[in-house]
Amino acid sequence: MPPPSNKRKPIALNLLEMPAKLENLPRFMTFVCEQARQFDFTDKRTLEIELVLEEALVNVIEYAYPAELPGRLILHLEGKADGKLHLEIRDRGIAFNPLERAAPDLEAELMERPIGGLGIFLMKEFTDGLSWHRENDENCLSIIFEPRHAD
């Protein structure tokens, strides 16, 4: 545990780049969670960050590239002095804005409930800023987390 005086120190820009494969998911998750804990996020908020991160990464892993030819997945992480954590996830796969996916019908009865569509919905619920843009043939998903998410 670092001394309290270091807790709010802005962390330098961090970057992790690996093939967009499911087997690399734990490495990406560990990378972000260790930073989040250093940066004064509660255990509850860190779990929410994990969830959002998994949904975002799995989205790229499953849809951005052809299964037999996984490309790169690039994760930028930056802690801001105001306590917010900024994440950027980039890939060079097909152009796809996940935020345009229709929200699932949360009121549907069990047998009518579609399988899937919940990941992006959960991302929206647990983030404090979520945007997508296409730049230099890359999908860029930007995510902002505040230390305590307003319910």
Partner: peptide
């Protein structure tokens, strides 16, 4: 300790199957 949409999906699939 933790569940993501993949876990929810698995639970939903099984719940539908046993209801059937």
């Amino acid at each position: 300790d933790y569940i993501s949409s993949a876990g929810l999906r698995a639970i939903l699939m099984v719940a539908k199957k046993v209801r059937g």
